[in-house]
């Protein structure tokens, strides 16, 4: 069952794994933006998570603790952002960009001495017998636990945002912080919690790069994945399941273009290389053109700071 030398089963299985970092980071950012905060520091939090996760995994020998470490590192960095924007009311765009630059620099410094070390492996979760089943085996059963975790988180966030009281409060804070404040919700505290959550998710996404996808630490390892995650949140119009689709689409095209090259496709390499980005832009345009007059789905208070002066 090959199409032009490419096995679709292996392709799907591969894209599920390669989409995990951007999926996790984009899910976290969705919650942050739903609460009305625009944190452009995703890339910085991811790379700090990649380093934090790697260091913890190497020191303890446990990849699971490594992912936790990555989440903690990402959340810790995001708290700097939270402090600046929620307490000192700094500009969110500028602070977010600064957070990325800061994260890249700190990770480069902290990563000295961790080059060339192999972290403990993160293997498949389920027994090989299941993964060896034809077609469904590699796609459904052949992954490590983080892949399942990322899908689970998509479902959980969808449910929380849509159907629970917590989700309602987060959305209220993001749509109209004045109204939420008038109802008695602590806007800045809720936003702070969301920022920390977003940081933890980005950190885990980063840890997946350094612990599972590349399994090693090198400077600049996330290589712009955080920016893609930001684009996917807009692409998904702030809805978790669409984030999943966006991440798989991007991951899928990235993997596909490499596979097409190996398979000796006649399409010039340059077009294949730009395809993931081109299609991301194209879909963004189509999505925003498709809803004339209506809002694009962005939370109404996105990017605005709140101070309880009244």
């Amino acid at each position: 069952m090959d199409f032009g030398g490419i096995n679709p089963v292996i392709l799907i299985a591969t894209l599920m794994a390669s989409a995990v970092p951007i999926l996790l980071a984009a899910l976290g950012e969705t919650v942050v933006e739903r609460a009305g905060v625009l944190n452009l520091g995703v890339e910085g939090m991811m790379i700090i998570g990649a380093l934090g996760g790697f260091v913890v995994a190497v020191q303890t020998g446990s990849p699971v603790l490594g992912f936790l470490g990555g989440a903690v590192a990402g959340a810790a960095l995001s708290l700097i952002f939270a402090l600046l924007t929620q307490v000192f009311l700094a500009n969110q765009v500028a602070t977010g960009l600064a957070l990325t630059l800061f994260g890249l620099g700190v990770s480069s410094l902290g990563g000295q001495g961790y080059n060339g070390i192999k972290p403990p492996p993160t293997g498949p979760l389920l027994p090989d017998a299941l993964a060896d089943l034809p077609v469904v085996g590699p796609i459904l059963f052949g992954h490590d636990w983080v892949v399942y975790f990322s899908i689970l988180m998509t479902a959980v966030l969808w449910w929380v945002l849509k159907a629970t009281r917590v989700g309602l409060i987060i959305r209220a804070v993001g749509e109209s912080h004045e109204a939420a404040h008038a109802l008695g919700y602590k806007v800045n505290r809720i936003r702070l919690a969301c920022i920390a959550f977003g940081g933890a998710m980005a950190g885990m996404g980063g840890a997946y790069v350094s612990l599972a996808r590349v399994p090693q630490w090198v400077d600049g390892i996330t290589a712009g994945a955080g920016w893609i995650a930001l684009a996917i949140v807009v692409f998904a119009s702030w809805k978790p399941w669409r984030v999943l689709i966006g991440a798989y689409l991007f991951g899928g095209i990235t993997v596909l273009q490499l596979n097409l090259q190996v398979a000796g496709s006649a399409i010039p390499v340059e077009y294949l290389s730009m395809a993931p980005y081109l299609i991301t832009i194209l879909v963004l345009v189509i999505m925003s053109a498709g809803r004339k007059g209506k809002a694009s789905g962005a939370p109404a208070s996105l990017g605005q700071n709140f101070h309880a002066s009244r």
Binding site: G5, R213, V255, L258, Q261, V262
Partner: peptide
């Protein structure tokens, strides 16, 4: 063709694409 000197994730993906085939 990876069109980069240094991008570990992309290099890993390239290797994986080769291995998959």
């Amino acid at each position: 063709w990876a069109f980069t000197w240094f991008d570990p994730a992309k290099e890993a993906d390239s290797a994986k694409a080769l291995i998959d085939q």
